[in-house]
Simulated scan of single mutants.
Amino acid sequence: MGMAEYKGKVKNMEDTPFGYTLSIIGGKWKMVILYLLAENQTVRFNDLKRQIGAITYKMLSSQLKELEADGMVKRKEYPQVPPKVEYSLTDKAETLIPVLEQLCEWGAKNQRN
């Protein structure tokens, strides 16, 4: 069902497919995290933090937990000292990567130089 089919019928945006999608990837960091995981396959927490830069440890942790709860990110913990935790995309998240690539293409075409 496309956006046009909801025109005038939407009482609550969260109840639409678009609203659902935004609930999964909305916010400042989730698409960045998904993009980096798509580029790197498997990434450790500190490497994600280093690549993103401006994000706090607390925010990165909460965003990863939300993405994991939504079935977008896999968390694998290795029982060793110091603890090692790796993150990767789920199959569900992989299906979203073409959409993120289209957003990047749009940005490349429309970014002011």
Rank of each mutant, 00 (worst) to 15 (best):
M1L: 02
M1Y: 05
G2T: 05
G2P: 06
G2F: 03
M3I: 13
A4M: 06
A4P: 08
A4T: 09
A4G: 01
E5L: 01
Y6I: 00
Y6P: 00
K7D: 06
K7P: 00
G8N: 08
K9E: 06
K9M: 06
K9V: 04
V10M: 01
V10S: 02
V10H: 08
K11A: 12
K11L: 11
N12W: 04
M13G: 10
M13P: 04
M13I: 02
M13N: 05
E14P: 07
D15R: 10
T16N: 00
F18D: 06
F18K: 01
F18T: 04
F18W: 09
Y20V: 11
Y20T: 00
T21C: 08
L22H: 07
S23A: 02
S23G: 03
S23N: 07
S23Y: 12
S23P: 03
I24E: 07
I24M: 03
I25S: 07
I25W: 12
I25V: 10
G26V: 07
G27P: 09
K28R: 08
K30M: 07
M31T: 15
M31H: 08
V32W: 00
V32Q: 09
V32K: 01
I33S: 02
L34D: 01
Y35D: 14
L36G: 05
N40W: 08
Q41N: 12
Q41K: 05
Q41H: 11
T42A: 12
V43Y: 04
R44D: 11
R44M: 07
R44A: 13
F45V: 15
N46T: 14
L48W: 08
L48D: 12
L48T: 06
K49H: 15
R50F: 15
Q51M: 15
I52M: 09
I52V: 15
I52E: 14
I52R: 11
I52A: 11
G53N: 11
A54H: 13
I55Y: 04
I55L: 08
T56L: 12
T56Y: 03
K58N: 14
K58H: 13
K58W: 01
M59V: 15
L60K: 13
L60T: 12
S61L: 10
S61H: 14
S61I: 01
S61G: 15
S62V: 15
Q63R: 15
Q63F: 02
L64G: 03
L64M: 07
K65E: 04
K65D: 01
K65R: 14
L67A: 02
A69I: 03
A69W: 09
D70A: 02
G71F: 11
G71E: 08
M72T: 02
R75W: 00
K76I: 14
E77N: 07
Y78Q: 14
P79T: 09
V81M: 12
K84S: 04
K84I: 11
V85W: 11
E86Q: 03
E86V: 02
S88P: 07
D91E: 12
A93M: 05
A93I: 03
A93N: 01
E94A: 09
E94I: 14
E94H: 07
T95S: 10
L96M: 00
L96C: 05
I97M: 05
P98H: 04
P98N: 11
P98I: 04
V99L: 05
V99G: 04
L100A: 10
E101T: 01
Q102I: 08
C104N: 10
E105K: 13
W106V: 01
W106M: 01
G107W: 14
A108L: 10
A108K: 12
K109G: 01
Q111A: 09
R112C: 02
R112H: 12
R112P: 06
R112N: 08
